[in-house]
């Protein structure tokens, strides 16, 4: 039976980067997943709404959880901001009965009621835990043959006691490995670099100070370059924007050129699965991946999946 999820694309991906969504839908089709579109609102982000008005943040997030609950579907998100908000709201509503009562009173005015019957997953969790690496490997017709630097996005795994409570280390923290393991399965080489699990700086630039945010990014790019990575794989649209536009801004300001193509994780998988470049939207990127495409190596005896 096909896996079914309530598809939560967020706000940024459908409006700014529709090619991430089309790549995600394409690999979902190849991997036999069904994505159901539901009337979700903005998640809303932990980096603005939660800081400004906590109750409103929790109420809107709980409303989104209710929308999926009514269809009895687990949520699949493609953005780390959304997964952070929804998982955290789910956790708070389950653990803190006082808040749950208060928020439910508010939601009842809009004809909804939170029960706490569903789970929230990021695309990475679904690929890694539900689909499995072997199933992805079976569908690949190319070896990537590229050095890939992974950037997970802070909100995917922090705070760890909410995001991945079952995998905590003795020091109560957690470090994700899913992008690196998926890269290996696709025939690419994951690259380790310093500051790998630290922030790209996007929320700082979006909220107050762009220059300071590019300073944070510059440090990261320096270490990525030092590790000889050829492309960056991200799991979040905001991180993508920071890497893509940040490289242009850093070139203007400091005369440093990095020219590292940045791909969303479903585009990277689509590339190995032989999905055509138009569906993946590779042309939309500022830093083109075209130079690296001849490096793809065909695997013998594999059939291209039909879309």
């Amino acid at each position: 039976m096909a896996l079914r999820y309530a598809f939560f694309p967020g706000c940024v991906i459908p409006a700014k980067y529709p090619h991430f969504e089309s790549a995600t839908r394409a690999i979902a089709k190849v991997l036999d997943m069904e994505l159901v579109d539901l009337p979700f609102s903005c998640c809303p982000p932990t980096s603005n709404m939660k800081l400004v008005h906590y109750d409103s943040w929790l109420a809107l997030a709980a409303r989104n959880l209710c929308v999926a609950e009514e269809q009895e579907l687990d949520i699949l998100t493609t953005c780390t901001g959304c997964v952070s908000t929804l998982k955290e709201a789910n956790y708070i509503m389950r653990q803190k009965p006082n808040r749950r009562r208060k928020i439910n009173r508010i939601l009842e005015k809009a004809g909804r009621h939170y029960e706490g019957t569903i789970e929230v997953f990021h695309l990475l969790d679904v690929l890694y835990d539900h689909i499995g690496l072997e199933a992805i490997e079976e569908k690949c017709i190319y070896d990537l043959n590229m050095k890939v630097a992974s950037h997970y996005g802070c909100h995917l795994f922090r705070p760890s006691y909410i995001m991945y409570p079952e995998f905590l280390s003795p020091s109560h923290s957690y470090v994700p490995t899913s992008i690196d393991e998926i890269t290996e399965v696709l025939g690419g080489e994951p690259v380790k670099y310093m500051r790998r699990f630290l922030c790209c700086g996007y929320p700082l630039g979006a909220n107050v100070d762009e220059d300071a945010s590019y300073e944070i990014l510059r440090e990261k790019l320096y270490y990525i370059k030092a590790a000889h990575a050829e492309l960056i794989a991200v799991a979040c649209a905001s991180c993508f924007e920071q890497f893509e536009l940040g490289q242009v801004m850093i070139k203007k300001k400091y005369k440093e050129t990095y020219k590292l193509p940045t791909l969303y994780i479903s585009q990277l998988i689509g590339l190995a699965m032989g999905i055509d470049n138009e569906t993946l939207g590779l042309k939309e990127h500022i830093h083109k991946i075209k130079k690296l495409l001849p490096r793809l190596q065909e695997r013998t005896g594999r059939m291209r999946a039909t879309l």
Binding site: C154, H155, R158, S213
Partner: peptide, 11 residues
Amino acid sequence: WYCTTCQVCQD
């Protein structure tokens, strides 16, 4: 307000 909400401080 100078914060990226990355939560590495708590981690």
